[in-house]
Design a protein around this nucleic acid. Structure first.
Length: 118
DNA sequence: CGTCTGGCCCATC
DNA sequence: GGATGGGCCAGAC
């Protein structure tokens, strides 16, 4: 989010120079429709970082708990959740996706069926 | 500066 | 299916 101060010339001074990578990434994720998933690489590209898949992971790791963006719709390019299978996070993501009728087959999501195509 | 580590990706074998 | 190696970018030493 920008914090801006307007001047008489209609220019703006921001506390952060530009949309942060994080913001661009969060915005992209926010656009994933319900019942669809996107890969880290896909989000990175959308946010303007063609090879920045890891940035997406980093951004999501720092996501505030109160945030409402659909982080659970971001999965890896293999169609799997990028959490250890035994972890609470894995189960939460799994449950949220299933609640949106995203199907798992042997722990994997069929990307040709469920990937968000822009 | 260098090196390692991440909710990764891709090509290749 | 799996393993490996290169690439990517930002942070943390």
């Amino acid at each position: 989010m920008y914090i801006g101060i307007s001047s008489s010339q209609h220019t703006y001074i921001y506390t952060m120079t530009e949309p942060t990578r994080q913001e661009a990434i969060y915005t992209a994720i926010a656009h994933i429709p319900e019942g669809k998933v996107a890969t880290y690489g896909q989000i990175a590209k959308l946010a303007g970082f063609p090879r920045g898949a890891r940035l997406v992971g980093q951004a999501l790791r720092q996501l505030p708990a109160k945030s409402t963006i659909p982080w659970h719709r971001v999965i890896n390019a293999q169609g799997q959740l990028s959490f250890p299978k035994a972890s609470a996070k894995y189960h939460e993501q799994y449950a949220r996706l299933q609640a949106e009728d995203v199907a798992f087959n042997g722990g994997k999501i069929n990307l040709t069926q469920f990937q968000w195509d822009i």
